[in-house]
Amino acid sequence: MDYMASQMDRQIEDSQVAYAAAMEDGRQPAFPVADYDHQTFNPATVDEAKRQLSGMSLRDYFAAKAMQGWTANPLPNDSSIQEVAEWAYRQADAMLAARSA
């Protein structure tokens, strides 16, 4: 019995690590941009440079696509726009998790 519990604990831990990695991956830019105009690109810090060059996050992009799908073909229910937005981010999180599966 202890062996089974240990195996289950290990599987849960592995899933949590994979999910955390997927969420970190979701913070990466969906459309990174290079800035070749060095006259206007003058960040004060490395973080500012990343912000200026990053574009939207992959998680935000996936959520926007999920929201677009919902609005094109909404399910007949009384969901508020807030609930639909939360649903879209759950869909985005699932897509990110599937990418690293």
Rank of each mutant, 00 (worst) to 15 (best):
A66L: 07
A64Y: 03
K65Y: 00
A44W: 05
A63R: 13
H38I: 14
H38D: 08
V33S: 10
H38E: 11
A64M: 11
E48T: 11
P43Y: 00
G55K: 11
K50N: 15
Q39V: 15
R27D: 11
Y61H: 12
D37S: 07
L53R: 12
M67Q: 05
V46G: 08
T45S: 04
A30K: 06
V33R: 02
W70K: 06
E48H: 03
S54N: 15
Y36V: 04
G69E: 09
R59P: 10
A49P: 00
Q28C: 08
T45W: 00
K50G: 14
K50V: 15
N73G: 08
H38C: 05
Q28W: 03
P32Y: 03
A63T: 12
A72R: 09
Q28R: 04
G69C: 12
A30V: 08
V46P: 15
T40H: 00
M67L: 05
A44T: 13
H38M: 13
V46F: 03
S57T: 05
A34Y: 08
A34W: 05
F62V: 13
Q39W: 12
M56H: 10
V46E: 08
S57M: 00
D37Y: 01
N73S: 13
G55Y: 01
E48D: 04
T71E: 14
Q39R: 14
S57E: 02
R51E: 05
D47S: 13
M67C: 10
K65G: 09
A34C: 14
N42D: 07
Q28M: 12
Q39H: 15
Y36S: 05
G55H: 03
R59C: 07
Y36A: 07
P43L: 02
F62W: 02
G26W: 00
V33E: 12
N42R: 06
L53M: 09
P32C: 04
F62C: 11
P43M: 04
Q39L: 15
G69Q: 12
R51H: 02
F62P: 08
A49H: 00
G55C: 11
A30I: 07
Q68L: 15
H38L: 14
G26D: 07
F31W: 01
V46C: 13
A63C: 11
Y36I: 07
Q68S: 15
Q52G: 06
Q28N: 06
K65D: 08
D35K: 13
K65T: 10
N73E: 09
E48I: 05
K65E: 07
R27W: 03
P32S: 04
Q52E: 00
K65H: 03
R59H: 05
G69W: 01
F31N: 14
V46L: 13
M56C: 15
R51D: 06
N73Q: 08
F41H: 02
R51N: 07
A66W: 00
P74V: 04
F62T: 10
N73K: 12
M67N: 08
M56G: 14
G55M: 09
Q68I: 15
S54I: 14
P29G: 01
D47A: 09
F41C: 06
P74Y: 03
W70A: 10
G26C: 04
